[in-house]
Design a protein around this nucleic acid. Structure first.
Length: 574
RNA sequence: CGGGGUGUAGCGCAGCCUGGUAGCGCAACUGCUUUGGGAGCAGUGGGUCGGGAGUUCGAAUCUCUCCACCCCGACCA
């Protein structure tokens, strides 16, 4: 591709409303443009990358025996009413009505459609197992779309659905997809982790997420460095500490703590560690009342664990400040478990702390040297916190390490939820109708592109892994339009690359070298060759890999073989 | 949805308080010079000042209203 024939649409300035680096770089590189909140066009450069991602997915899905099809975005309401999700789904489901006043939606996912296809097309267990997939545009009317294509309303997803006659078959299909996903993410060339996850509202027993690791990731994942345990932090059990509670050493006292509202204030103000302080959170109870949850000051509440507790409202809701002050008589910031007239549940780690600091349930007062069992009743204990770095790994050896990730893939076992509600049955060998066991498998295609950038960039721009790069090699001639020798050498090299099927980008624009270099680095092409009059006179060309610190000068007569060696796969044999 | 904020040229912004008919930088276009890290000079084009209503002789500016977009939303107890 010649730059002069391409729509290279780079921006020098960073658009103000792009908060995260991938969004900024995608806009600056001219990959995407926004039309409305969470609605983007993919410009030619961005689309090339998107297609790379899709192609890898397609090849590996095909290899795993899945069959590609294409389902509609516009979906009739009847199917959603059959599955029951027309009423269950919140406002994320974009509903609309056609000219005949028929209800419909723009599909956020395709279980209903694929089940409808299945029940019309498949009648016999002999046709199973079966796995249909598509790469298609989804629409979810997010409350707050942000981070560019990371969380947009319209996005491209690969979704696959497997059908089996029994659970064992479903497990086999799931395992095949698990392996296919590993192959896909390996081929992307990204640093990722597969972790076990909460199956959430979709149901089913087994579920795994695939996360691209990046410090900016919205999810925390925990894994054992010694064992093979890895899971989304929201699902990880915090094992109760093995140690006994430390003994009380002093009488409980009340101290004045004006202006100290947070654990940090308190720890600094009293000169104790956050671990020594109790964090008391007030949440809504099922019956409309309140429940107190007590954590060690340095720990965080795990909402999933908390909402499963007896008596706690699900989904978890923190109590309104007004309700707290009205019920307890003291403001938030001074609440503690001692003398608190509420159902109280204490995290295991908080329950072994002796001589702790906690709110005194009077404004601007805290207790010090408080002790469980002495100053109040023995606590009701539960696991309600997120695990932290260094916690013991459940079901495995070693300690947990916490990393941040971006969820780009999720595989589930659905069971018979949709096949039963939508009456999709096949006949088994005895001629009896059986609702098949389904699995569903998603990859956020557009999100993979953004995640790849979050993980791989520098001050100059994007650094694509080779498998996702829009072009493999940038040829940057200096004075292409002035120097006949430069033009000659450049055209020769360009022609050679085209012949070899190499995806090459020739920047033949009549621009100053600095502009060309900056653009090539911004759009992240992995390799760069510079041809200049100066170099050619010295019988040299310059090469620089995108993440190399500096360029190297190499003999001009090795240029052809050098390029061939860069891409052995793409070179013609011999 | 609640709270806060912003809408002026493709992008980034000033002008608004104190009303007088719109400006800067980048980008674009033309010409000349320049050519190894986002050039210089000269010139050109481009704006319903988010929409509507109102006040006024006169509104980007004041008032009302609608819209769009952005940010924050529980770890604080």
């Amino acid at each position: 591709m010649r730059a002069s024939r391409f729509h290279l649409a780079t921006l020098k300035e960073t658009p103000v409303d792009a908060e995260i680096i991938s969004h900024q770089l995608m806009l600056r590189a001219g990959m995407i443009r926004r039309h409305a909140a969470g609605i983007y066009s993919w410009l030619p450069l961005g689309l090339r990358i998107l297609r790379k991602v899709e192609q890898i997915i397609r090849e590996e899905m095909d290899r795993a025996g899945a069959l590609e099809l294409l389902m509609p975005s516009f979906q009739p309401a009847e199917l959603w009413q059959e599955s029951g999700r027309w009423d269950q789904f919140g406002p994320e489901l974009l509903r609309l009505r056609d000219r005949h006043d028929r209800d419909a939606c723009i599909g956020p996912t395709h279980e209903e459609i694929v089940t409808d296809i299945f029940r019309r097309e498949v009648n016999s267990y002999r046709q199973l197992p079966l796995n249909f997939y598509q790469i298609q545009t989804k629409f979810r009317d997010e409350i707050r779309p942000r981070f560019g294509v990371m969380r947009s309303r319209e996005f491209i997803m690969k979704d696959a659905y497997s059908f089996d006659i029994d659970k064992e078959g479903m497990q086999r299909s799931y395992d095949i997809m698990d392996q296919a996903y590993i192959n896909i993410f390996d081929r992307f060339g990204l640093d990722y982790r597969a972790v076990s996850a909460d199956s959430g509202a979709i149901g089913g027993s087994t579920s795994q997420e695939f996360h691209v690791l990046a410090d900016s990731g919205e999810d925390a994942i925990a894994f054992s460095e010694q064992g093979d345990f890895a899971a989304n932090i929201e699902t990880v059990e915090a094992l109760p500490p093995r140690i006994e509670r430390s003994a009380a050493s002093a009488e409980m006292q009340t101290v004045d703590t004006p202006g100290m509202y947070t654990i940090e204030d308190l720890a600094n103000g009293l000169g104790v560690s956050a671990q020594q302080c109790m964090k008391t959170l007030i949440v809504e109870a099922e019956d409309g009342g309140l429940v107190a949850l007590v954590l060690r000051g340095d720990h965080e509440l795990n909402a999933l664990k908390a909402e499963r507790l007896d008596g706690v409202a699900s989904p978890l809701r923190l109590a309104q400040r007004e309700q707290i002050t009205a019920t307890l008589g003291s403001d938030i910031g001074s609440i503690g478990p001692i003398g608190l007239n509420l159902k109280t549940i204490v995290d295991h780690s908080a329950a072994v702390v002796g001589d702790f600091v906690c709110g005194a349930n009077q404004d601007d007062k805290h207790f010090i040297n408080a002790n469980w069992g002495r100053d109040c009743e023995e606590p009701v204990k539960a696991d309600i916190r997120n695990v932290v770095d260094g916690d013991p790994s459940p079901g495995s050896t070693g300690q947990l390490k916490i990393l941040r990730g971006i969820e780009v893939g999720h595989i589930f076992q659905l069971g018979q939820k949709y096949s039963e509600s939508m009456q999709a049955a096949v006949l088994d060998e005895n001629g009896k109708g059986i609702a098949p066991f389904m699995g569903c498998y998603g990859i956020g295609v557009t999100r993979v592109v953004a995640a790849a950038i979050e993980q791989n960039h520098d001050a100059q721009g994007i650094i694509w892994p080779a498998a996702l790069a829009p072009f493999q090699l940038a040829i940057c001639p200096i004075n292409y339009h002035k120097s006949e020798v430069v033009k000659q050498a450049t055209d020769d090299l360009y022609q050679q690359c085209l012949t070899r099927g190499l995806e090459v980008f020739l920047d033949d624009r009549a621009l100053r070298p600095g502009v060309i270099f900056s653009d090539m680095e911004l759009i992240g092409i992995p390799h760069r060759i510079v041809l200049s009059e100066r170099g050619i006179t010295a019988q040299q060309f310059e090469y620089k890999g995108r993440s190399d610190d500096s360029a190297q000068e190499l003999p001009l007569d090795e240029l052809k073989t050098f390029v061939d060696k860069l891409y052995p796969d793409q070179c013609a044999p011999g």
